[in-house]
């Protein structure tokens, strides 16, 4: 997070342009709002003001803009959106910085373009979470009896693992990735909710798993207990939608708000899958 700056000279209000969409599958449109300047606002407080006013720049009264947020301290990832063309968290995007460093006149807000829009700036990130299921991003310790203390983790592994554990599943890395393309399905008439969910999951599973999940696989394959499932995780990385889709553009690492060394994870995953596939080839 950058330091809050002082008030930009001679500004008492600024414009906000928002890409709105009423419902999934509907056409999107730009809407302009004017917001009174206050020191130390973030994009969430801007959105709160806009929702309270619910009036556009030309005086039309409109429905309040919808958005997601939760922690307000850049640890939940819910408020991720595209601000001035770059994906980031709305809660930690400070208005003073945006006006001073990017555009003194206006702030542009768009929903992430790689996920289906639910409404306005809210998107459905279920593909991101499905990828974590596919990646088995957990340590399997559930059982019927006491397993005792887990094995020790060496300081070296801890040092490698800790940065990866900071992922908040925000989706920035996916939004910026040129190889991660949008998958949006619509429910067919006569399809039950369950059938639709199942079809969505199956489609997501064939699309690119994403940098966040590749990195989580490396994290859990490093863990002494998580390791037991290493082969199953690597199988997922070589399955349809696996690591092979990555084109090494390295945008993911450049935009990750948690500064997770994603491309290091990707290269390690490349090495691990190389070894895994060769091993499987000779073991069968």
């Amino acid at each position: 997070m950058a330091e809050p700056q002082s008030k930009p000279a001679s500004i008492d209000s600024f414009e906000v342009r928002i890409l709105r969409q009423e419902a999934p599958g509907r056409a999107s449109y730009w809407e302009r709002h004017r917001v009174d300047y206050e020191p130390q606002m973030n994009v969430i407080s801007v959105l709160q003001k806009i929702a309270a006013k619910a009036t556009t720049i030309d005086g039309r009264s409109v429905t309040p803009v919808a958005w997601d947020c939760n922690c307000l301290e850049e640890i939940c990832g819910a408020c991720t959106m595209v601000i001035n063309g770059r994906v980031r968290q709305a809660c930690s995007a400070l208005v003073d910085n945006l006006l001073q460093q990017e555009d003194p006149n206006e702030i542009r807000l768009e929903p992430m373009s790689k996920f289906p829009v639910v409404r306005d700036l809210m998107v459905d990130r279920s593909r991101l979470f499905r990828a974590l299921e596919k990646a088995r991003a957990w340590v399997p310790v559930d059982g019927y009896y006491e397993l005792g203390p887990g094995p020790r983790v060496s300081p070296e592994v801890q040092e490698q693992a800790y940065p990866l554990s900071k992922c908040m599943s925000c989706g920035c890395c996916l939004e910026a990735c040129p190889q991660y393309t949008k998958v949006e399905l619509t429910r067919l008439s006569g399809e039950t909710d369950e059938e639709f969910q199942q079809r969505k999951r199956a489609t997501y599973d064939q699309s690119f798993i994403g940098a966040h999940a590749i990195s989580q696989i490396m994290l859990f394959n490093m863990h002494p207990t998580g390791k037991h499932e290493a082969a199953a995780r690597l199988d997922q990385l070589t399955a349809p939608g696996g690591i092979q889709i990555c084109g090494n553009a390295q945008n993911c690492v450049a935009v990750c708000p948690k500064e997770i060394p994603l491309t290091t994870s990707i290269a390690r995953a490349g090495r691990a899958t190389t070894a895994h596939v060769i091993k499987k080839w000779f073991d069968r």
């Binding site: 990555c246 090494n248 060394p261 491309t263 290091t264 990707i266 290269a267 390690r268 995953a269 490349g270 090495r271 691990a272 899958t273 190389t274």
Partner: peptide, 11 residues
């Protein structure tokens, strides 16, 4: 290719 095959991994 070096990244894809995992030859160079760290930044």
């Amino acid at each position: 290719m070096g990244i894809t095959w995992g030859v160079w991994t760290s930044p």
